[in-house]
Write a protein that binds this DNA or RNA. Structure first.
Lengths: 336, 336
DNA sequence: AACCTCCATTGAACCGTTTCAATCATGATT
DNA sequence: AATCATGATTGAAACGGTTCAATGGAGGTT
């Protein structure tokens, strides 16, 4: 028994193939009576349109590609979840790839996605200090629909939706200063990368506006923006630096910082205030609930998808970095 | 300027479209000289095969669908990551959907995936007590390639790759008994669901084999297999039940259990031993590192993908539940 | 020189939709 | 009764690959 095609339906319903097709697409040109008749046959035969033929005809796969650095940091899992829900509402599918923060891997994934015919791409840029962006640049020059999420590549401030982390960082730092903390530091990755430079910028601005001297030594460059990274950073700098306020670049790292401080017998927040960024769901349920800057995940995903679909629809979307407001979430890991 | 098609390449190379196609597919029937010539033109024109036409011709999208309950529990994020890597090695893409533990949503996602023409499905069953499985049953009867991962639906013990959680549970319980714990309980979801019944089974067997009486009150049925769920369960049963050993059904819940116990001033593991399941990456980096049963995520994903591709290739894969060995990971949350 | 083999290449059928100009049917208008 | 307008339906082209039977050509054998 062969596959049931639109022809079989047409034959059995006594209409042309075109009529069946238009019925399935709910075209207003087909009379209700005919539609009803055709749909009955469709039902009876259990007919289902061939997705390959359909994509071929339409030149669209109604699917988009999503690239994230990975799911070790649950923040990205939460983004993936929100993104999937948003894309699904538009009756599209989401394919995903994991870059492991390597721009090279990212390029490979993009290539794969293009070979699969995705209609557009949503990319969380890899935190890669020396990214090779030739491929992305080529796609941008061809105006292939592509939106950067949560950050962007410094050279390419196009079509981006992210959180206003600079403001979040600023506000958080101000609150640390107001709480009377004197020796505040930030533990971050390379300032060459947007996710870090934004946070550093806000951090610095807080001192400037309060009129406090800013010393570069407040900025601790570390690598490994993970629990282990935070743990190791404390080992390396705490005894010498003796901070009473620590901003870690994300919640996972902040948790590592707290873990190491506690194991050294330091009290939080009495001795040291700690805060992170992202507000991942475990941040609030730690033994010491974490003060953090909450990224508006849902709104960001919705805005990114909106932007992407506008581009796919051929609208002329101006290249812009859209920064959504954040919320500073005070919890027990910092003094007020 | 129109799209560059295989015809353009053929014309410029002075060969037929068939030759170009076979060259691109690296057919041994084409001479090396011709291939080289054709590839040069391909390069020059920047030609790229149309993925839609290709899928259409081949009746394959080289993509598979993956359904997970969500990423709130990072365990699923880790599975997704491993799965993606495995699928990518096979030059296929992974689409994903999130069921939120609703079989209804799962069915909807499956439908969507079928409409997109995925070659197969990998499903982490929803923890839904009254699932409507008609659609899945239909697909199974059509022998559509489909593999269940980490668990299966009780009525449908087909094509499954999971961890041997019963053994893990057994071993863990034995170690609790050996450590001299007297009042051991397990906090679990509905025993109607495989992920829970497996763990309960192993738990029970440990008592049986040691010759200890087993009392049903050792099994605490709870809902919400999350941090909050664990927290709430302790609130509800601890004072009355006074356990000295607690198995939580997964690591997130175990963390909730620990969180609540500590806030009550109970010492872990001195007063109470706690263990979880999954060995998610944060389990080891908690303030009190968690004793847990590690699921072999990578091997499970590899086995599942292998199975699925065999099915897609038309091989006759016997329906079977494959259980991979687990490893009990002892850490500080339990006495030895 | 005629015949045979073998390998490389060709060319056309095929896949299952969508789309749209052309046709047909119906009822209204003169 | 002839003409027109409107709306429903048809039929065939188009999409861009893959595949394979048929063809062509070069080299070897008799």
């Amino acid at each position: 028994m062969g596959k049931i095609t639109i022809k079989d339906v047409a034959a059995m319903a006594g209409v042309s193939v075109g009529t069946v097709s238009m019925t399935l697409n709910n075209s207003p040109k087909i009379s209700e009576a005919t539609k009803k008749n055709v749909m009955e046959i469709v039902e009876k035969l259990g007919y289902r349109r061939d997705p390959y033929a359909r994509s071929f005809s339409l030149s669209s796969s109604r699917s988009i590609g999503f690239i994230a650095p990975g799911f070790v940091n649950p923040f990205f899992g939460e983004v993936a979840e929100a993104l999937q829900a948003t894309v699904e509402e538009k009756n599209n599918s989401l394919m995903f790839g994991i870059s492991n923060d390597s721009a090279k891997q990212e390029a490979k994934l993009i290539d794969q996605f293009l070979d699969r015919g995705v209609d557009g791409l949503i990319i969380i840029p890899a935190e890669d200090v020396h990214p090779d962006l030739t491929q992305i640049k080529r796609l941008l020059s061809e105006s292939f629909p592509m939106v950067f999420l949560t950050s962007y590549y410094k050279e390419l401030p196009y079509h981006t939706v992210m959180a206003d982390l600079a403001s979040g960082s600023y506000e958080l730092t101000r609150s640390f200063i107001s709480a009377g903390l004197k020796n505040i530091i930030i533990i971050t990755g390379s300032p060459d990368l947007i996710p870090f430079s934004e946070r550093i910028y806000g951090f610095r601005r807080a001192f400037d506006e309060v009129g406090l001297p800013f010393d570069e030594s407040r900025v601790i460059i570390s690598d490994g923006m993970s629990y282990e990274g935070g743990y190791a950073a404390i080992d390396r700098i705490f005894d010498e630096r003796k901070p009473d306020g620590i901003l870690a670049i994300n919640d996972m790292m902040a948790m590592g910082v707290i873990g190491r401080l506690k194991s050294k017998g330091i009290r939080i927040p009495e001795d040291v205030s700690v805060a992170g960024f992202d507000d991942i769901s475990i941040a609030s349920i730690q033994e010491t609930p974490l003060t953090t800057v909450a990224q508006p995940i849902r709104p960001m995903c919705m805005a990114a998808v909106e932007k992407l679909f506008d581009m796919i629809a051929g609208k002329d979307v101006p290249a812009a970095v859209e920064k959504l407001p954040v919320r500073v979430q005070h919890r027990n890991s910092s003094r007020m």
